[in-house]
């Protein structure tokens, strides 16, 4: 069976859930081979094998992660050359999409980003995308080269399927051209103990309506085990980090449940959350456009509604 390459998303070998999703999808198309770039492959190998990786290609030269995306695209290009895979699956985050783009040019292959589903169709790999802020569903295929598909997190339910996970080191020399944009400083984000925004099953976001006090939003999120998001207005005001921004120029999230508190529902915000399964809003203005999207809305002050809901949730959960 032909190989399917899966680029592993990890921090020092701690594998993100989205990678297990990609491996689950890869099994529909062929035999999954994980590609682990950077340190921590031994740790990662266990998880990768559990979700179906027959092989785990590793590349751990320091230059792999010292520069922006270009070296990673070179490693993948070398593996495409070597293994002639039916597809390369990459996490559809900002870096992943750029790697996909460069790999497409290097290997003369079509690239599809932001896929929410991937299947083995009659014409080869078939993808589903949700476009124009979730108002259309588009099916597409790749008809040139290797199908390079960036898949959004939360697109499938992960299924374990233990496989060999045989480790094989890849021998690639990163070109000088790829070592042009150097990461000279990297300040890790403070750990919050909350789930990662794009992977969370529940997201609770706050906007300008919080007036800068995210306390009620965070407490409600914690009662639900949710990630915390923010509108750009809240980020611009310096109330919440940019990495938590939801929307066109922030993160695109698609959780089971999205709660917007004190957020009006501007088109740029919708672009990042409109595909959420269930949408809830708390806003004191009954005319706020966010109410057009909701499954359940409360017209009211978030400073009274959220604390009451938090108490009720805690009680219900025991």
């Amino acid at each position: 069976m032909a190989e399917v390459l899966v680029l592993v998303d990890h921090v020092d070998g701690k594998v993100r859930k989205s990678t297990a999703e990609l491996l689950t999808i890869a099994r529909r198309l062929g035999e999954p081979s994980a590609v682990h770039i950077g340190p921590g492959a031994e740790t990662a190998q266990v998880t990768l094998a559990k979700y179906g990786a027959e092989k785990v290609y590793t590349f751990d030269a320091p230059e792999a992660l010292e520069y922006l995306v270009a070296p990673q695209a070179e490693v993948l290009a070398a593996l495409v050359e070597k293994t002639s895979p039916v597809a390369v699956l990459i996490p559809s985050n900002s870096a992943g999409k750029e790697i996909a783009g460069r790999l497409g040019i290097k290997t003369n292959s079509g690239v599809i980003t932001d896929a929410v589903d991937v299947t083995a169709g009659g014409e080869g790999v078939e993808t589903t995308q949700s476009v124009f802020a979730g108002s259309y569903t588009v099916k597409a295929t790749v008809n040139q080269g290797t199908a390079i598909v960036a898949v959004k997190p939360n697109s499938v339910a992960i299924e374990a399927a233990p496989a060999a996970g045989t480790v094989e080191a890849v021998d690639v020399t990163v070109s000088d051209a790829a070592k042009a944009a150097k990461i000279v400083e990297s300040k890790p984000k403070e750990a919050t103990g909350r789930p990662e925004l794009t992977e969370a099953a529940i997201v609770v976001s706050g906007g300008r309506g919080t007036g800068g006090d995210f306390g009620p939003v965070e407490e409600f999120a914690d009662s639900l085990g949710a990630a915390v998001g923010a509108s750009r207005a809240a980020v611009d005001a310096g109330w919440y980090p940019h990495s938590n921004q939801v929307g066109q120029t922030g993160k695109q999230v698609s959780p089971q449940l999205y709660v917007a508190a004190g957020i009006s529902g501007a088109i740029q915000h919708r672009a990042g959350m409109q595909t959420s399964k269930t949408i809830v809003a708390v806003n004191k203005d009954e005319e706020a456009p966010i109410f057009e999207l909701v499954d359940f809305g409360v017209v009211g002050d978030l400073f009274t509604v959220l604390p009451q809901a938090t108490e009720a949730v805690k009680k219900a959960k025991g």
């Binding site: 079509g110 259309y136 295929t141 040139q144 009954e286 909701v294 359940f296 017209v299 009211g300």
Partner: peptide
């Protein structure tokens, strides 16, 4: 190198339930 084989408009979201907070929101 990529082909869109079909597109479909998503059905509009059904109007949800909206309540006004009267102390029990």
């Amino acid at each position: 190198w990529t082909t869109v084989t079909s597109f479909a408009k998503r059905p509009p979201r059904e109007q949800g339930q909206i309540v006004t907070d009267e102390g029990d929101g």
